[in-house]
């Protein structure tokens, strides 16, 4: 394996006195999908926000070989990182097209036009709705727009926070298919999910977080059969078949 694109070492994030992420180590290899799964409140969202620079953190963050733990959020975007946050954070009063254009704020006009075409090919739905206000989109469309907006920046690393949140199962399937296609086109992906089964099926490598710590990690294909995963989600012992 090449040197990882993103390397997190001993990362701590605190809200006031309370640490929400304690000593997390994670690596994202180039061209891979890495997933972080875990229950609500395990610290997954906090972790992503810290990596992106939305939240201050302590510890090492290396991206494409450079230490970036002190650089501001905007510079991390310039460097090729992009986050699709849990709440999407779209510009809801603006047209779909404008949301996309702003996604390419740091790119040249030519690059923007080119990438927008690519995004429209990937998400034909967005092309249909290009003049519609982002706030009027359905949940699935909003997620697609959020991903499209992130792609406009031409990121090397795309971080997705709960892309399946609040979406109907059929749409979730679509979204995950696109995530897979993105990896195949060379974008590295860090995926945080509660929908563990879907995430594990898609990912190359997985981490399980609990109470701010990574408690398990391994190949996604192996973890999907792991009994402990079931416990993380449903608790107690029972023999529901996951595979």
């Amino acid at each position: 394996m090449n040197a990882p694109l993103l390397e997190i070492s001993d990362l701590h994030v605190a809200y006031g006195k309370v640490e929400a992420v304690t000593g997390v180590d994670i690596a994202v290899a180039e061209g891979a999908i890495i997933t972080v799964i875990g229950a609500n409140g395990a610290g997954k969202t906090t972790l992503l926000n810290a990596i992106m620079g939305v939240l201050p953190s302590r510890g090492g963050i290396r991206f494409a070989g450079e230490a970036i733990d002190q650089t501001p959020l905007e510079s991390r975007v310039t460097g090729g990182m992009c986050l699709v946050p849990e709440r999407r954070e779209l510009f809801s009063g603006m047209a779909v097209e404008d949301n996309l254009l702003l996604g390419g704020f740091l790119r040249t006009r030519v690059e923007r036009a080119q990438t927008q075409e690519e995004v429209f090919t990937r998400f034909p739905r967005l092309k249909e709705r290009r003049r519609q206000l982002a706030g009027t989109l359905s949940g699935g469309e909003r997620q697609m727009l959020a991903m499209g907006r992130a792609l406009m920046a031409r990121p090397k690393l795309l971080m997705l926070d709960e892309p399946s949140l609040g979406l109907a199962p059929r749409i979730v399937a679509d979204v995950f298919e696109i995530v897979g296609a993105l990896r195949d086109s060379g974008v590295s992906i860090l995926l945080v999910e509660q929908n563990a089964r879907a995430a594990l099926r898609l990912a190359d490598h997985a981490y399980v977080m609990e109470l701010g710590c990574v408690v398990m990690q391994g190949k996604a294909s192996e973890m999907i059969a792991d009994k402990r995963i079931i416990e993380t989600y449903l608790g107690g012992t029972h023999n529901a078949d996951l595979a």
Partner: peptide, 16 residues
């Protein structure tokens, strides 16, 4: 306008 509408969203696309 984007900054006004959604500060975090704007920062995430690289608007300072």
């Amino acid at each position: 306008i984007a900054t006004a509408m959604n500060r975090l969203g704007a920062r995430l696309v690289g608007v300072r």
